[in-house]
């Protein structure tokens, strides 16, 4: 199957009295069966886009098509085939998590209770607890269960891993991979490059309401920047780490080497392997530093040309 699961053309949204432009001419095309990452810093317009897809917001200009339909005209039909995970599941009242999931299931004409239970067990969610006593992480799990329970064709997930601990994040990413294997389409927003790299086929990068890039995830990985810190058992010569490909900002300080890797870590690892490595620490700077810098400079270059 090689259809289009969702498409936007020139999608624009202004908010409020000041007509603040939250989204500016967004063109997206998500193919059926792919996992599509939607990356951007907070406030870039990711949630606005998602709420436009669900017909919770109405576009100022542009077109939206979800599963081949107009979400405004055929909203009920479209949303029957979607699973939506909000960024922060709003909860109120004394109902238990199980009650809410039963109610939401009925809105879909019934969802197999066994599937709800299986998903809850998988994320170790206690369905008997009252909603308002749930932590952010547990609310997120309720959100995951209701989004996946009816096994929808299209999953629209807004910052799906926020609040989950690392093990649960991995479990969630497994769930996403299973959905893809089953032929589902996944559209997930995130401000964390790593999780998108792990599961997505392609990703769009959004900044200040504009689309900056659409890339294969392999390309994203090449572009990704890591700060790496190596500790050796004895001081190492600076010359051993000079002029390595994909490695920048190297500083050698006795037995410690710090560097920024852009793309592959291969050259740095091979250079380090000649000495006795005690520890390796690597971390991903936030999206803005790691990643948007690249496109910002590219954009500036184009403008100068």
């Amino acid at each position: 199957m090689n259809g289009v699961a969702l498409r936007t053309e020139g999608l624009t949204k202004d908010y409020g009295r000041g007509r603040h432009r939250a989204l500016d001419g967004l063109d997206l095309e998500v193919r059926t069966g792919e996992v599509y990452g939607f990356l951007g810093p907070n406030g870039a317009g990711k949630t606005t886009t998602i709420r436009l897809l669900l017909d919770l917001l109405r576009p100022t200009a542009g077109r939206v098509e979800v599963l081949g339909r107009d979400p405004r005209r055929d909203g009920v039909e479209v949303r029957r085939r979607i699973g939506y995970l909000p960024g922060d599941l709003p909860v109120r009242g004394r109902d238990s998590a199980g009650d809410l999931l039963t109610f939401l299931g009925h809105l879909r004409g019934g969802v197999p209770a066994a599937r709800v239970r299986a998903l809850a067990d998988r994320f170790e969610l206690d369905l008997r607890r009252p909603l308002r006593e749930l932590s952010k992480g547990n609310r997120q799990k309720v959100g995951i269960v209701q989004a996946f329970a009816h096994d929808p064709e299209l999953l629209i997930l807004d910052e799906p891993t926020s609040g989950l601990d690392p093990l649960q994040q991995q479990e969630f990413l497994r769930l996403v991979r299973e959905a893809r294997t089953a032929g589902r389409t996944v559209f997930m927003s995130s401000h964390v490059l790593g999780e998108v790299q792990e599961v997505a086929d392609r990703a769009a990068v959004l900044r200040a309401g504009r689309l900056v890039a659409v890339e294969d995830v392999d390309t994203l990985r090449e572009r990704a920047v890591h700060e790496v810190e190596l500790h050796f058992d004895a001081p190492v010569p600076a010359a051993a780490f000079a002029d390595l490909p994909d490695v920048r900002h190297v500083s050698v300080d006795g037995a410690t080497v710090r560097a920024v890797v852009e793309g592959r870590a291969d050259a740095l690892v091979k250079a380090a392997a000649r000495f006795t490595v005690l520890t390796v620490r690597s971390h991903e700077p936030d999206l803005e530093d790691a990643f948007l810098a690249h496109y910002a400079s590219e954009e500036a270059g184009r403008r100068a040309a």
Partner: peptide, 14 residues
């Protein structure tokens, strides 16, 4: 204002 309408209206409910 509580934000609960969002979730309801993301379901197949006009």
């Amino acid at each position: 204002e509580d934000g609960t309408l969002d979730l309801l209206l993301a379901h197949p409910l006009s």
